[in-house]
């Protein structure tokens, strides 16, 4: 099956066609980055997840966090659920690991702001 998507690598917005039956080959791109994006986006779409976790004793009640690498799109809600159980005590430092290998994705959830 050929899937169609809009490239988001640059503002041009090329319409990419990705052929799932032909090793996810990409047409419609005007640069190599577009081909890579289209291939990856259909074969194994991933996202960096950013959210917050509970923080006690800090300037604010929430501490921002992110996954330290892109995780499969399908795992985002599982990771959100895992973050609900996290509670940090101030002070925290940016880069500090909150959850290691979250939901077996190989990614760590880390603090993004010292609070």
């Amino acid at each position: 099956m050929v899937r169609e998507l809009v490239c988001i690598v640059c503002p041009k917005g090329c319409r990419l066609h990705v052929d799932e039956d032909n090793n996810y080959s990409v047409t419609g791109n005007s640069c190599p980055r577009g081909a890579e994006y289209g291939h990856h986006e259909i074969k194994n779409p991933t996202r960096v997840l950013t959210s917050t976790v509970r923080l006690d004793g800090g300037l604010y009640r929430r501490c921002p966090v992110k996954t330290d690498r892109a995780v499969p799109k399908g795992k985002l809600m599982d990771i959100m659920a895992a973050l609900n159980d996290v509670s940090l005590q101030s002070p925290v430092a940016a880069g500090q690991v909150v959850l290691a290998n979250v939901c077996d994705t190989g990614a760590n959830v880390i603090v993004t702001k010292s609070l």
Binding site: V48, T50, S51, T52, P64, K66, A94, T112, K113
Partner: peptide
């Protein structure tokens, strides 16, 4: 930037994708 916890900041400036708090940091 403190409330913009999503990433995508700094691609031009630091050649990497930072969250808002990281960029401010």
């Amino acid at each position: 930037l403190n409330q913009c916890i999503h990433n995508g900041f700094g691609l031009h400036r630091f050649k990497e994708e930072l969250t808002g708090p990281e960029y401010a940091g």
